[in-house]
Amino acid sequence: MLLEVEGLCVNYGHIEAIRDISFGVEEGTVTTLIGANGAGKTTTLKTLSGLRKVRAGKVIFEGKDITHLPAHERVKMGLSQSPEGRGIFPGMTVRENLFMGAYTRRDKPEMAVDFDRVMGLFPRLEERIDQVAGTMSGGEQQMLAMGRALMARPRVVLLDEPSMGLAPKLIAQIFSIITEINEQGTTVLLVEQNAAQALKRAHTAHVLETGEIVRSGTGAELAGDDSVKAAYLGGDI
């Protein structure tokens, strides 16, 4: 396992946002967490990135216990994230935003390789490379957030609802890019509301309900599961 979560509990004050969660992310796969609003998906990803304090449990990355490692150290180890709401730097240009993704890196020539790769995945960003990021459309900002996360050349990239607020055509595009990123060798942990698409793309999937994992399986298994269908897929897929 590239990334392992063992008995993770995270609180906001007295509210238990996630309770005793355990799962793993196999190297080279796409793993997805699906669940309703407030289930604890974002909290899980923020905790994996080191932005939330752990009450109990462990996070293990490449065999090392990183539960209490500060966020900026985790990036260096190869764990990057495209956060919910995109979190782009509005006053910086697209190019500057992308290179913020490579902030911890010193290998200039290799950074240029990754920059080209991101340009290849998101031609739209290339067209707007010197635009101030805050003036871009929501979909463009989403691409920027994903591209920026890839600029870290991560071992595993955490994507928090990359399809949020996008037009259906763009959603399909974003999901095929996720598959492409994975096929280029990056492990993906994907959080989604769009369960149908996420399950279709994922090797492994977990369903989160009020802070607990209630169901796990392959993407196809969960897509065929009646209760998952009823709760998250609106009956059709």
Binding site: S49, G50, L51, A71, H72, V75, K76, S80, Q81, P83, G87, I88, F89, P90, G91, M92, M100, G101, Y103, T104, R148, A149, A152
Partner: peptide, 14 residues
């Protein structure tokens, strides 16, 4: 500048 614009995102960048 990144920290000034979005501290949490800046931390995610390392």
């Amino acid at each position: 500048r990144a920290t000034a614009q979005d501290p949490e995102s800046a931390a995610l960048m390392g």
